[in-house]
Design a protein around this nucleic acid. Structure first.
Lengths: 165, 165
DNA sequence: TTGGAATGTCAACAAGGCTGTCCTAAGATG
DNA sequence: CATCTTAGGACAGCCTTGTTGACATTCCAA
């Protein structure tokens, strides 16, 4: 961009650079999930519960099918997780008003509390990384992540981003 | 950095921005692993095998203990994977020459072929993302990922990066 | 009104994490 | 030499979370 002959521009697509990016992604994702994982380990929950709670908080009233397509897992995977969350009174599933086949999902007070705890932990790390890296780096980070998504997921991500709170 | 009053600078740390970063990370990681996963699904292997093969290719002759600490799993988890890779003649474990308790791990010809197939797929996506985003964005991407790692992992990552081919 | 499609539930299985125990071989140290 | 520690492996068994497949309920359209 600024200087087309800089080593940055010439080298950022070498196999070695790409492999460093791949490894960075691997190690960073571990850091990314570390804090919520630690909290979840103290209860009988895992990452799958975190994801479900996150996206229900994000779009209250969402249906099982919708959650399914966002999370990209099979019905049974999600159902098992949802079952335990409902049994433990973290999530409420109301029968759809217009279509009675659907279940609209909401967090209970307890569920909201857990969601906040988890996302606080995750946001704290994210904030530290953002702060240390600076706005320009963050913009680049976001750009690369978005182009790395699969087409279908990218659409879902953008829909969430724009429709979001 | 450039303009401390730009909306970028003012807004990049809001909870909404952080949450978008979190979701971007989630969706992007799925894209990141999608191509190798598809290849692995056609054989009797999974992500765990990919990771082992990747880091053995990266540091031929590495020991089991070293791999263990890079991957951050337990002996039994790794051993199960390593066992099948050795049995299938993708990995060779040679008794250490100086310390005979150690096993030095190497890819066989077959193992090298699989590793190349997997990493080609992953690099292709990475390259497309890098190319679309541009060098500045890539630099930012890397910076944020590095600050997002846990301290211990960051050290391992940098050691790999510098020692690397 | 009847048959197909859509929504969600449940049973059963596999992969890959984890713990814990026990074992051998080999290096390190008194 | 005797003992302790370290590297690696084997086995049993647990948990989470992914999978497929069968099934009930509900809606909708021919």
């Amino acid at each position: 961009m600024s200087d087309p002959t800089s080593s940055d521009t010439l080298l950022f697509l070498t196999d070695e650079q790409l492999r460093q990016g791949i490894e960075a992604m691997f190690f960073a994702y571990r850091g990314f999930t570390a804090d919520p994982d630690r909290i979840l380990a103290t209860m009988a929950y895992g990452r799958a519960h975190h994801r479900a709670v996150h996206f229900i908080a994000r779009a209250p009233g969402t249906t099982v099918t919708n959650l399914l397509s966002i999370l990209g897992v099979t019905k049974q995977s999600l159902n098992r997780v949802l079952r335990s969350l409902i049994d433990d009174d973290l999530v409420e599933a109301r029968v759809g008003s217009s279509d009675k086949r659907e279940r609209n999902l909401y967090l209970t007070t307890k569920g909201t509390a857990l969601e906040r705890k988890l996302s606080d932990a995750q946001r704290t790390r994210m904030r530290a990384a953002y702060r240390a890296a600076g706005p320009q780096a963050v913009a680049g980070f976001r750009t690369v992540l978005e182009t790395m998504m699969d087409g279908d997921l990218r659409r879902r991500y953008k829909a969430l981003k724009e429709g979001g709170a």
